[in-house]
């Protein structure tokens, strides 16, 4: 096991992706706790499809993928948040429309230009190993920003998540923090798409926090445990995929799924006993 890890880290491109992957997994799990509890899980899913559309168009135009996708997804995130806040339009339907719409635009762009090449496959299913040096730098910087903001505003984010009206009434600018959550989520999703792909990124956000909630009873421990679970599943998934030559993204998600089932069972036993 140790030997395997050492071999993995000895390839420079691998250790590069591992670093980016750990940071992205960390960001996704931290934000996931808030998104799941605020009932925003579907927004994460919708954003990943918007991200795919944006990446497809960027690659068709030969533009830098992340630089195009990040602003587009950030705008989409604000928009989706607005929709889910207004009672007039039904939020879940609007999200479904936007996510399938942008997926269709992405697929159309791809088939009209380059066809289903490896680039496109990478965005759909992820390829952590194909991360370039420049992408890596951007990922690391953005992840650190997400982590720092999260830690600085931890208590405010908790208050806004638990009871938005109370937070607003007692003078916390809930709207501002909602925008911050949307912004951080958008960034994390675009970065995570390189790792596990557009189709699987929402699982990276939702699984760890759901798993942690099976057994934790404090918000703080949910946050810490879901971060640990996320990083553990990422490393475990990468190791297995390296050893057995399976797709990295799918392996990571399956590791998350196994842990979720395991923790659900533990939670059920604990509650009965």
């Amino acid at each position: 096991m140790i030997e395997l890890l050492r071999t993995l880290f000895s390839y420079s491109f691998l250790s590069r992706s591992l670093l980016a992957g750990i940071l992205i997994a960390l960001c996704a799990s931290l934000l996931g706790v808030i998104l799941v509890l605020k009932r925003y899980s579907m927004i994460g899913d919708g954003l990943s499809h918007v991200g795919f559309g944006a990446l497809a168009i960027a690659s068709a135009m030969n533009a830098a993928p992340l630089q195009v996708a990040i602003p587009v997804v950030v705008i989409a995130a604000f928009f989706l948040l607005r929709i889910s806040e207004s009672s007039k339009i039904k939020g879940d339907a609007a999200i479904a429309v936007i996510s399938s719409g942008s997926l269709a635009i992405g697929v159309m762009t791809v088939s009209l230009t380059s066809g289903m090449n490896t680039d496109v496959m990478n965005y759909l299913f992820g390829s952590i190993l194909a991360i370039s040096r420049q992408d890596l730098l951007l990922s690391v910087i953005l992840c650190l920003i997400v982590l720092i903001l999260y830690l600085c505003f931890y208590h405010k984010l908790f208050a806004v998540t638990f009871d938005e009206n109370f937070a607003k009434a007692t003078g916390t600018k809930a709207g501002l923090y909602n925008i911050m959550i949307a912004f951080l989520t958008a960034i994390t999703i675009v970065l995570g798409m390189r790792m596990v792909g557009a189709l699987l990124i929402s699982s990276l956000i939702i699984f760890p926090s759901l798993t942690a909630m099976r057994i934790c009873k404090r918000f703080q421990s949910v946050v810490i445990l879901s971060a640990l679970i996320s990083v553990f599943c990422f490393l475990g998934g990468i190791l297995v995929s390296y050893q057995f030559n399976t797709p990295a993204g799918a392996t990571i998600v399956i590791a998350n799924l196994i842990l979720f089932i395991l923790f659900s069972l533990i939670g059920a036993v604990k509650n009965r006993g």
Binding site: H155, F158, A159, F162, D163, F166, A167, T172, F219
Partner: peptide, 9 residues
Amino acid sequence: EVVLSGCLN
């Protein structure tokens, strides 16, 4: 945690 969040202001 819930009670403490009342002190946020």
